Amino acid sequence: MRFLWPELLWTLLALPLLVLFYIAILRRRKKMAMQYAGLATVKAAMSQGQRLRQHLPPLLFLLAFAGMLLAVARPVAVVTLPSQYKTMILAIDVSGSMRANDVKPTRFDAAISAVKAFVNQQPGDTRVGLVSFAGTASMIQLPTTNREDLLDAVSRLQLQYGTAVGSGILVSLKAIFPDAEFDLTSADPGRISSRDQRSSSLDSRAGREKPARDFKPVAPGSYANAAIILLTDGHTTTGPEPVKTAQLAAERGVKVYTIGLGTVEGQIVTADGWSMHTSLDEDALKEISSVTKGEYFYAGTAEDLNRIYKSLNSRIAIERKETETTALFAAVAACLALLSALLSLLWFNRVL
């Protein structure tokens, strides 16, 4: 826990002063009582239960006062809250290396099975989109709540050549922010495209200046309406640099959860008269998830992959975030103060 206004914690020094003030009042009352009765008579008249009743309301009020002073300092804590993700983009690697059978029956078949199970587990109001990427990336299914259309789209996925992880991230971002413009052919996809340059030039001639990027970057991981789940089994061989595209997602606050499928040491895949060696680039996937405040998962078997997608349901449905808890401290303090006053009225017919 931390405090936004820690300098106000000095006000807690008032607590021991209140305790000393309370002790002084008790001594004064005792002296006044002894003027009319002996000390033995006073002790005999007050049982242990009565002593507890005497001190409990002031103790509760002291705790309430402490809670109010802490609330003034604006406490902040990491709390677990239900997420508000209403759009999920599934980016699936369909490169030829997905034919490898180190994940049974094959990487591709295991991925399709796990993705279908994940789709079926989503709440009915969650929109799920599907992006496939190999040498290029394509939007296979726009975000939808229609599970049948989505499952049909998953079943239509076909293996292709190449691996463009960066393109997969960009097309996924485009599905979340349709008005955003990225250059899929550039190693620096964040630069203004030629179409944007022409549009900006036309706007300038019309007397209006159009900025190349008309959005303000936000804190990474702060966008609560959508997230990307990206699965791949290899290295990027073409397209934009993945970490640079991850920076674009981070600037828009979108988390990218990455899943590495297959073995790190790799496998030689043979198909259509050619062979290739494929291995998992875990470092890039870890950096992508780190930059966007997402999380990286490794799946070495089909069982691992299914377990990861199941765990993503709970991880995405519930998220931990830093939240100001001033209202909570104030509410607890108010309840303690009210309880103190009620007990004092009930037992002594006075408020403290």
Rank of each mutant, 00 (worst) to 15 (best):
S194T: 05
P217A: 12
L230H: 04
A227W: 00
A219H: 08
T185N: 14
G221T: 09
T232P: 08
A219D: 12
R213Q: 12
A212Y: 11
G221K: 08
S193Q: 09
K216P: 00
S194I: 03
Q197G: 01
P211M: 06
G239T: 03
T232L: 12
N225V: 00
R213F: 07
S193W: 04
D188G: 01
G207L: 11
D203I: 00
S193L: 02
A206D: 13
S201Y: 13
D233Y: 10
I228R: 05
I192S: 13
R213W: 05
L231S: 07
S222R: 07
P189S: 09
A187D: 11
L231Y: 00
L230G: 03
Q197E: 11
R191E: 05
A226H: 01
G207K: 11
K210I: 01
K210Q: 10
S201R: 14
T185D: 13
N225S: 10
A227C: 03
G221M: 08
T237G: 11
D188S: 04
K210W: 01
T238M: 10
L202M: 13
T237I: 06
D233S: 12
K216V: 14
R208K: 14
Q197M: 07
P211R: 10
I228H: 02
A224Y: 00
R198V: 10
R208V: 12
S201I: 05
S222W: 04
G221F: 06
D203A: 14
I229D: 02
Y223C: 02
S194L: 04
A187W: 00
G239F: 01
A227E: 02
G234F: 05
P240A: 05
T236C: 06
I229G: 02
S199K: 15
A219K: 15
G207Y: 09
H235R: 14
P189D: 11
P240T: 04
L230I: 02
I192F: 03
N225Y: 04
I229R: 01
P211V: 06
L231A: 07
K210H: 07
D233R: 10
R191H: 06
D214K: 04
R195Q: 15
P189Y: 06
A206C: 09
S222G: 06
D196K: 14
S194P: 00
A212G: 15
F215G: 11
S199I: 13
T185R: 13
L231F: 02
G190H: 02
S201L: 14
I229C: 00
D214F: 01
R191L: 08
H235L: 13
S222Y: 04
R191K: 10
T232N: 10
T237Y: 05
F215S: 11
S199H: 12
D203S: 14
R213A: 12
D214L: 08
D214I: 00
S186T: 06
F215T: 10
R213D: 09
S201D: 08
A212S: 10
P220F: 06
K216T: 15
S186G: 07
T232A: 11
A206K: 14
V218E: 12
E209V: 08
E209M: 04
I229Y: 15
S204A: 15
T238G: 06
S204W: 11
A219N: 13
K216H: 06
N225D: 11
A187Q: 09
P220C: 08
L230E: 03
H235V: 14
F215N: 10
D203L: 15
H235Q: 15
